[in-house]
Simulated scan of single mutants.
Amino acid sequence: MLIASYAVYPTANWLASLREQRFDFITPWDGLIPLVPEFIFVYFSFFPFLVLPYWLVQQPAISLLGKRQVAGTLICGLVFVLFPANLAFDRVIPEVEPYRSIFSAMFFVDKPHNLLPSLHIVYTALTGLAICQAQWPKGRVWLCAAIALWSVAICASTMLVHQHHILDVVTALLLVAVLYGVIRPAPAELKHPA
């Protein structure tokens, strides 16, 4: 997944930045979303969140997660290139540190065109679901609740730091549903008596 992500995302971002025609995937409700700089830490907590399956998801479920993540990356990359988007929010750099430095660095690295569907949300939702599917049967309800809350917080953070819009989140969740429907577990091998 990391190889696909680091190959596809920057390439799609660069190609999208070259396009003259861009699209507005904006709803009337996006203008009501405030900038909450403190949520940048939740936004970046996405990176440690993605490594949790190494400890919490076993084979073959972790391979299935990887296949869904790679497919999601390729689909999002294609959409980013075909439909580069405009960010509805002004890219405001907060005056207060450490937010000033963090937002400045983020804006320098990331062009605001790879928006819909949000790959941040695709990875978060796929990872959270895989963890909960692995841990729920073990009776770890508290862990699943914590993962669900963390996932929702990451999803909210993408909008509260003005990196994504509502439709970016909605289309990402729809893509996750499609990936779950299309990329399914292989039928269990028949066990023959010895």
Rank of each mutant, 00 (worst) to 15 (best):
L78W: 01
V42L: 14
F89V: 02
E20P: 00
P185R: 13
L74W: 06
P187W: 03
I93F: 12
L143M: 10
V152Q: 05
C144K: 12
A177G: 13
C155A: 15
H113C: 12
Y43I: 00
A61C: 08
V169A: 14
A146D: 11
V36G: 04
L116Y: 07
L160K: 06
A125Q: 06
L119P: 00
I62F: 00
Q135T: 09
W150K: 09
L143I: 03
P112D: 01
R140C: 01
E97A: 14
L129M: 09
F39Y: 04
G77S: 07
F41H: 06
V161E: 05
P48C: 10
H192E: 12
L116C: 14
S5N: 12
S104C: 05
L87H: 09
F47V: 03
G139L: 05
F39E: 03
L115V: 03
P94H: 04
P48Y: 00
T73G: 09
A153M: 14
A172Y: 00
I33F: 06
H164C: 13
V42N: 10
A156P: 07
P84H: 05
L190C: 08
H120L: 03
G139N: 11
P112R: 04
F108R: 15
G66K: 11
I102E: 05
I62A: 08
S45Y: 09
P60V: 05
A88I: 07
L160M: 11
R140I: 04
E38C: 06
P53W: 00
K67G: 13
A194G: 10
S63W: 06
L15F: 09
L15H: 06
F23E: 02
P193T: 10
L126V: 11
K138A: 01
I154M: 02
A134R: 11
A7T: 11
D168W: 03
F83R: 05
I26K: 12
W29N: 09
G77M: 03
V122T: 11
L87P: 11
C155N: 07
L18S: 07
A85L: 08
K67E: 14
R100N: 13
C144Q: 12
H120G: 03
P84Y: 06
R91E: 05
T158Q: 01
Y43F: 14
P60F: 04
P37G: 09
A172T: 04
K111I: 01
P137E: 01
L174G: 12
P187I: 01
R100E: 14
I33G: 00
G72F: 04
A194I: 12
S63T: 14
V141P: 07
L116H: 08
A145Y: 07
F108V: 08
W14D: 08
P117K: 07
I33K: 06
R100K: 15
A71W: 06
L2A: 13
T171F: 14
D90S: 07
C144D: 10
A16I: 02
T127R: 06
W142V: 10
P98I: 02
H192I: 13
F23V: 02
P112K: 07
F89Y: 15
L15A: 11
G31I: 00
F25A: 10
T158H: 01
L32W: 11
G72M: 04
T127M: 03
N86D: 03
M106T: 14
L52D: 06
S157D: 02
A186S: 11
N114P: 05
V57Y: 02
D24R: 13
D110R: 09
Y6M: 15
E20Y: 12
H164F: 08
V122R: 07
I26L: 13
P60I: 04
L56N: 10
L35W: 00
F80I: 00
P28Q: 10
